[in-house]
């Protein structure tokens, strides 16, 4: 089963976020036990967003696009790819906005902007993935 380009890009982004999130997590644990570096613990919101949203959820999105049942009888084999693209773009723009808002003092005004983007990402991904939750080749087991 060939992994489509959309899955590849989504999975690569997920892996990058995983490394970034794990790096922040390691820094935070060191900051907990080494008081001069206690300010590293301020990275908690980014650590959670990068690991859970950017890493794990994005990994699930990329893998689901690849392995869920497809539509052999439609021009678009993978279903509505516009919704999938919207979800990936909204999630990643949301993560950038969230990271700026929580990581750079000059951008704190962006704090409330990321959540609507995350909501768009979730709704678009659900719109993409719902029709693909079906029997393989239309055959019930």
């Amino acid at each position: 089963m060939i992994m489509p380009a959309r899955s590849q890009w989504t999975l690569r982004l997920a892996l990058i976020y995983m490394v970034g999130g794990a790096t922040l997590g390691a820094m935070m644990l060191i900051g907990k036990v080494h008081p001069p570096l206690a300010h590293w613990m301020n990275g908690l919101p980014l650590h959670i967003a990068w690991m859970v949203g950017g890493g794990f959820l994005q990994f699930v999105m990329g893998t689901a696009f690849w392995i869920l049942p497809k539509f052999a009888d439609r021009p678009s084999f993978y279903g509505n790819v516009f919704f999938f693209d919207t979800a990936v773009v909204a999630l990643n723009v949301g993560l950038i906005v969230y990271s700026l808002a929580h990581g750079v003092a000059a951008f704190t005004f962006l704090k409330s902007w990321s959540w609507p983007l995350f909501a768009i990402a979730l709704l678009a991904w659900m719109a993409h993935v719902f029709p693909r939750i079906k029997p393989f080749q239309g055959v019930e087991e």
Partner: peptide, 26 residues
């Protein structure tokens, strides 16, 4: 705790190094 942080980070990093070349068409 510092060792715990290093081990977990190495774990994730090794996983990403391992799986990255397998994210491909076929």
């Amino acid at each position: 705790a510092i060792l715990a942080a290093v081990f977990q980070w190495v774990g994730f990093f090794c996983y990403v190094l391992h799986i990255w070349p397998r994210v491909k068409g076929k």
